[in-house]
Computed example of a mutant assay.
Amino acid sequence: MTLDKLKFPIGEFEKPETITENILTNWISVIALFPEKLTSEVNNLTDSQLDTPYRPGGWTVRQVVHHCADSHINSLTRFKLALTEDNPTIKPYFEDRWAELPDSKTLPIDSSLKILEGIHARWITLLNNLTNQQLKRTFVHPEKGKALSLDEATGLYAWHCNHHLAHITTLKQRKNW
């Protein structure tokens, strides 16, 4: 398996030309099911397995789990900012640096699994109640230099869920865990 395939096991996010109601419903379903799927994949892993990088030079499974909690906390905040402010510029963060902090490298994963369960419960309630007009609200990501609509951001985070889940599932397959 190539390093690029290990880094992006499902490929990179590709925004569809038109975001239909069916596509959006599918994305929301992916986000809704993510905490349960992630927990199922990591719950019985040993500390040694959790501390295994999913690829050479990549994060460990433990860091991936903690990263998902960090990322999805930020995402829910970005959605709420976009819904309550006009095209706000969000604050990016150095996810690679966050992944190197002691809580991401050493803390048991239970706290992040609980965070994901709670964040996703709130996020799904929000997503399921947004109007078409609200889904078109935007925020600006300064690193990308453009406005991102909430419907597109929903797709990006559905991809994010599947992307990191695939990091774990492909590692487990390769290691025969």
Rank of each mutant, 00 (worst) to 15 (best):
R78F: 01
L38E: 07
K114P: 06
A32R: 12
K114R: 08
P56Y: 14
H120C: 03
T154L: 02
L150H: 07
P88Y: 02
L83P: 11
L24Y: 06
T89G: 06
S71F: 00
C68H: 06
P35W: 04
L127G: 00
I73N: 13
G57L: 06
W123H: 13
F94V: 12
G145F: 00
D110I: 12
T60F: 06
L150Q: 09
E21G: 13
N74W: 00
F79L: 13
R137A: 15
L130V: 05
P108A: 15
P92C: 11
P53L: 06
F139N: 07
Y54K: 12
Q133K: 09
P53C: 02
I119R: 05
H141T: 01
N129G: 05
N26P: 00
Y93W: 14
N22F: 12
P88L: 04
P142Y: 03
L150W: 08
Q134F: 06
K105S: 13
I109Q: 06
V30P: 06
K80A: 02
T77C: 12
R97Q: 12
V64D: 01
N132S: 12
F94C: 14
E143M: 00
L107E: 12
N129Y: 03
T89A: 15
R78M: 03
L150C: 09
W27H: 11
D51P: 03
L116C: 12
H72R: 07
R97D: 13
L50N: 02
T77A: 14
T154H: 01
T52V: 04
E41Y: 02
R122W: 08
I90Y: 03
G58M: 10
L45Q: 08
W123G: 10
L135I: 05
L81F: 07
L113S: 09
D70N: 07
L81K: 14
N74S: 13
D96E: 10
I115F: 11
Q49M: 04
V65F: 02
H120A: 03
V65T: 01
V65Q: 02
L127T: 01
E95H: 04
G145T: 00
S112W: 05
P92K: 10
I28A: 15
T125D: 14
D47Q: 12
L24F: 08
I119S: 09
V61L: 10
N44K: 10
T84K: 08
H67T: 08
P92W: 03
P108I: 11
L130T: 03
P142M: 00
A82M: 03
F79G: 11
I124V: 15
Q134N: 01
Y93F: 15
Q63W: 00
S48K: 10
D51K: 09
R78E: 03
N132R: 06
D151P: 02
T131W: 06
